[in-house]
Amino acid sequence: MELRHLRYFRAAAEELNITRAAQRLHMAQPPLTRQINQLEEELGAKLFERGPRGLTLTPAGQFFYEHSLQILEKLDTTVTAVRRMVRHNRELFGIGFVPSLFYGQLPLLVRGLRQKDDVELTLAEMTTVEQVQALKAGRIDIGFGRLRIDDPEVEQEVLFEEPMMAAVPVGHPLDGSMPTLEELAQYPLVLYPASPRPSLADIVLGLFRRRGLKVEVAQEAHEMQTALGLVVSHFGITLVPEQVKRQNRDGISYLYLAEKHITSPIVCSRRRGEVPSETMKEANAILKVLVENRISGKYP
C-alpha cells in the first residue's frame, strides 16, 4: 500500500462519485477505479457499495476513512513543518509523550521551547515503547513516558514518582473514601492502553498481582479518555496518575489510595551518548525547574 492509494481513497470517500473524484485528482476514471480495487484487494475488505446514484462507504470503508485521514493529516502537518524549518533555518526538535503527562507541567516545557525562534517543535503521542523506537530512529529527540525499558541506545531518567488515584463514577460505593487495592479489586476494572504492550495497563495489573489480588477486567480501551468515559458509564473503575484529576471531568470522582506508596514513574528518555544540542540543553534546564516545582509542591 502506498500513500497515493490513501489519497485516491480519500477523494473517492469524500466525493462518493468516481467521476468527480477523478476530476479532483486530475486523472482519468479507469485508473482511479483500478487503484481503489487494488486497495480493497490488499485490505481484503469492501470499502464501497456501488449503486446507480454513486458510492456509499461500507462500515469497513468508514473505519478506514477515519483512520487514513489521520495518517494523511499527520503527513501534511509534518511536510509543512519540515518546509517551514528549512525556510527559516530552524532546528527540528521532536517530543514524544504519553497523553496523561499533558495534564501536568509538560505543556510548560513545550511553551518554553516554542519561544525559541530557531526551533521547530513536533509533538507525538506515543507509549514509552514507541518512544524508545522513535528515539533510535531519530524521529524524536526526547520522550516522556511511564515505563523503564532497558535499551543500550537509550538512557532513561526517572524524574519523579507520581501517586496513582482511583477514578470511580460519582455515587460509587467507594466515592469519598481512600480505598485500598483490596477494596478496588472487588469491582470491575477498565484498563488502558489496550495496545501496544507493555504499557500503563501492565503496571496497574502488576499492582494487584503482586498482592495476590485477582481483578476482573471489564474492558480495555486504547486511550485514557475512552477509559474515563467507560468509568462514567459505570463499566468499571480505573487507576490514573494524579495529574489526570486536574481536568475535572464530570461524572468522575478521583480518590487517593490508602497505600501512599503506590506510584507511577515519570520517565524521561534520550538517546545515549549524544552531545546535547542547544535546544536539548534548554529543554533540560526548563525540565529541571519543572521537576523541582513538582517535587516541592509548586504547581503552575
Rank of each mutant, 00 (worst) to 15 (best):
A167N: 05
Y256P: 15
S100L: 05
H234T: 05
R53H: 06
S100N: 12
P173I: 05
R211K: 15
N284P: 05
A227T: 09
L43Y: 08
P241T: 08
V215N: 05
T58D: 04
T122F: 05
P196V: 05
V291Y: 00
A167W: 04
Q23R: 12
E49Q: 15
T180S: 14
V289Q: 02
L159T: 02
E223Y: 13
H5R: 05
K288C: 03
Q131P: 03
R50Q: 13
G96K: 01
R4L: 11
A81S: 11
A45I: 10
A194T: 03
V110P: 00
V154I: 11
R24G: 00
R271S: 02
A81E: 09
Y256K: 10
G171C: 06
L287H: 02
G251F: 07
L189N: 01
V231Q: 04
L255F: 06
R83Q: 12
G94L: 03
T77G: 08
A137G: 07
R249V: 09
L123R: 11
P31R: 08
P152N: 08
K214Q: 10
F9T: 04
T238F: 02
E183M: 15
H5L: 11
R210A: 10
V267M: 00
N17F: 13
L32M: 14
V190Q: 01
D118W: 00
L121Y: 02
R87V: 15
H67E: 09
P300M: 09
M1V: 11
S68L: 01
T238S: 03
E220G: 07
M178C: 14
F208V: 08
E220L: 00
T263Y: 14
K288L: 09
E15V: 03
R211G: 01
G61V: 06
R84K: 10
Q186Y: 06
E162C: 03
A134T: 00
T122R: 07
T122I: 07
V98F: 01
A45F: 09
A201T: 12
P188I: 07
D76K: 10
L200T: 08
I286Y: 07
V244D: 05
E66Y: 07
A283G: 07
P196G: 14
L106C: 04
T127Q: 00
S177C: 13
E120D: 10
L159W: 12
L25P: 12
S68E: 10
V79L: 14
R246W: 10
N37L: 10
S177T: 15
E153K: 00
E161K: 14
F97W: 02
E153Y: 01
V217H: 06
Q133I: 02
A258W: 11
L106P: 00
E292W: 04
D151A: 11
M126W: 02
E125K: 02
Q70G: 06
F63V: 08
I203T: 09
L230A: 05
S100G: 02
P107T: 11
L25V: 08
R249Q: 11
S233E: 15
R211E: 15
A28E: 14
E274S: 04
G51T: 04
I36N: 04
I149Q: 01
